[in-house]
């Protein structure tokens, strides 16, 4: 590892760690403001939704394969209630589809 590589990793780690810790450090042991408490109740599900759309942005190229695989994933999970089966099955399907269908 070169010095430059070390510095790059250090910057990425430093920024990420600071971002993760800021809310906890700023609020500390003080009483959490009511607004922040409210956000604690509603933000999680809202963020998950935003994240789902975000990761789907990555497969815009292969959106048909993506759509099919996502549907299969949801179906497997709803039917068999096994996240492992849903994950493995839909990922394999996606990898197959993008090679065969190329869409």
């Amino acid at each position: 590892m070169t010095v430059q590589q070390f510095i790059i990793i250090a910057i990425m780690a430093g920024v990420t760690i600071v971002l993760r810790f800021i809310p906890f450090v700023v609020i500390g042991a003080k009483k959490t403001p009511a607004l922040i408490q409210y956000l604690g109740r509603v933000l999680p599900s809202a963020i998950v939704v935003v994240l789902v759309v975000y990761v789907m942005l990555d497969i815009r190229q292969n959106w048909v394969s993506g759509l099919i695989s996502i549907s299969v994933c949801a179906l497997i999970y709803l039917k068999r209630n096994s996240s492992m089966q849903a994950l493995a099955g839909s990922t394999l399907l996606y990898m197959l589809l993008i090679r065969i269908l190329k869409i």
Binding site: V48, Y77, A86
Partner: peptide, 22 residues
């Protein structure tokens, strides 16, 4: 190529769980 789809699948599963919970 395509293995990162697992992340999308994971979020689909987590979203279904969230919707069920809310």
């Amino acid at each position: 190529t395509g293995v990162s789809f697992a992340m999308i699948a994971l979020f689909v599963v987590l979203t279904i769980d969230q919707v069920k919970k809310n």
